[in-house]
Design a protein around this nucleic acid. Sequence first.
DNA 1: TGTACATCAGTGAACGCGCGTTCACTGATGTAC
DNA 2: TGTACATCAGTGAACGCGCGTTCACTGATGTAC
Lengths: 237, 237
Amino acid sequence: MATTTPNASRTARDRARRELTEEIKRVARRHLAEHGSAALSLRAVAREVGMVSSAVYRYFPSRDDLLTALIIDAYDAVGERAEAAESASRDRGADARWLSVCEAVRAWALANPHEYALIFGSPVPGYAAPEATIGPASRVPLVLLRLLGDGVASGEFVAGKTPAMSRTTRSDFAQLRRTAAPAVPDAVLSRGLSVWAQLLGGINLEMFGHLHNVIRDYDAFFTLQMRRACEFLTQGV
Amino acid sequence: MATTTPNASRTARDRARRELTEEIKRVARRHLAEHGSAALSLRAVAREVGMVSSAVYRYFPSRDDLLTALIIDAYDAVGERAEAAESASRDRGADARWLSVCEAVRAWALANPHEYALIFGSPVPGYAAPEATIGPASRVPLVLLRLLGDGVASGEFVAGKTPAMSRTTRSDFAQLRRTAAPAVPDAVLSRGLSVWAQLLGGINLEMFGHLHNVIRDYDAFFTLQMRRACEFLTQGV
DNA sequence: TGTACATCAGTGAACGCGCGTTCACTGATGTAC
DNA sequence: TGTACATCAGTGAACGCGCGTTCACTGATGTAC
């Protein structure tokens, strides 16, 4: 057992590699947080990790791959928060649970503004998100869709009259329902997507300075707005 | 009259200066549209205008000042569209007028994605917007606030029951009312700000790829969502 | 109207910087016999 | 257990690039008398 290499966390080399990969990401994440994604430089990260710049290429084949790793981490981080908020609020009303998830997303965004900007702000110029980001990117929306389903099942979210929709949109909604929100009627899906847009729009307004000199207490304002938006989910208009 | 220099468009030098300033902005705007704000380079613009890079400094004291000029132009461009949409829809219902302004903002955004990102996306790293942008930045919000006032005056936007608000938010709203929307009650202001957030959030979701593989017909989806949001303005919840 | 001087646009060279990426290399770690 | 070879992390120099900004200058345009 001492000589045979165990399958998990095998050799010293392997452990070192794993640790250094994390270390590079950690430093890169901090650089991102301090200077924004456009200023993220392989060389600066290498300097701080204590490597020569070319050594980073043993870990990430290019700057874009490092960026991709950070994007995935960011999606996972906010996804985790949203999932935690969902679990923690399990005994409350469906609209309160939505609100709780929304607050969690905003709290994460405020705590990690550059990472938020990286995934929900303008796209990094010249960077195309690869397939691998799709899964992590779906975590928050999936939480919200699940809550929509719960609310419909419990009778809290009432469909009301179905909105007039184009055929394409109807089929888009049907597909969305099939993959993630069975039994959620179009009217409720539509309202859910509205609140989702409002959540991100509200965070953007706040974080990117558009409420400067207009709103003083961002926390109170956000909670007011989102509380009303989440109540709106329960109405069958 | 031939020898004395008239006050408007005075000397040849003056005219040349005005024209070249516009030419530089025009080229810079195109570069912005093609490569994004981070990639906007004085040297590249100078090259295309046919100047040596240092000559641009006769027109803009630094890259940031050029960027500021573009930001102001962008705010003015979208502001103009919004104002035009407002005027053009003068004979329609208040919610239809809101919708019309929202559609105008989105249409401008889709036609000028990088300019949109410049003003409503993540802030340019290392750039702080100067005072001079405040006025142009207010044009669209002012249009919407005006329409809120109209809708209240005509009885289309009903306050309904006043939401529970913190003292600070109440006073923020009061200030907003004083500067731009007299007689608009808190409940309507709150709904208006919600729709504003939803508008920007929706455009971001669409433009930054978050609806990829979810929504196929963006136009139809946007119109559906905004139509419902604007109807929401009329309700006294 | 003509001349002397002041203003200003544009030039070209230079400074100093940092970037992403490649490549031949050294030396340590891991593996097969 | 010991040896020979293969794998791989990290080095250091280099390539080629573009950037923002400064500065002393030339020559054209404008102005005052």
